[in-house]
Amino acid sequence: MGMISSQEKAAALAAVPLFAGISDDSMAHLTEVAGEVEFPAGQFIVRQGQVGSGLYVIIHGLARVVRGSTEIASLGPGEFFGELSVIDQEPRMASVEAVRDTRLLAVASWDLLRLLESDPALAQNLIRELARRVRSAGEHHHH
């Protein structure tokens, strides 16, 4: 697979709900700082317990989220992970493993934090997403 063009990169980022409604400046900056990475099937993208270095957005492929030995979610194009470690700089709570050959865009912690500070729309999208996950974690717990 060849590298994607910056237009493709911008289009892929624009399709991610987390980045909906952010300013043109933020989107341009994000496109510039997001690096393309690729993982073959079976390889770990991030490992539980490691200190996180950034946020990943899946462009193509499929990955699974594993905590301990339990699979807790699978993630496809447009879905993201790694944001918690960016916010609190704590070790990663789960591993993410490529199930198929998977291509992602990676945004370094430092770049994401700068964007969060400068663009309230991004912070707002993220806070809603985290709130939604807290609720759904709580609901699972009840069952």
């Binding site: 905590r67 301990g68 339990t70 807790i72 918690l84 916010i87 609190d88 704590e90 709570m93 806070i127 985290l130 709130a131 996950r133 807290v134 974690a137 709580g138 699972h140 717990h141």
Partner: peptide, 13 residues
């Protein structure tokens, strides 16, 4: 909220 999510997730696992 990130901290709550971590706590909620630990609870679950």
């Amino acid at each position: 909220i990130a901290l709550r999510l971590r706590n909620a997730s630990r609870w679950r696992s």
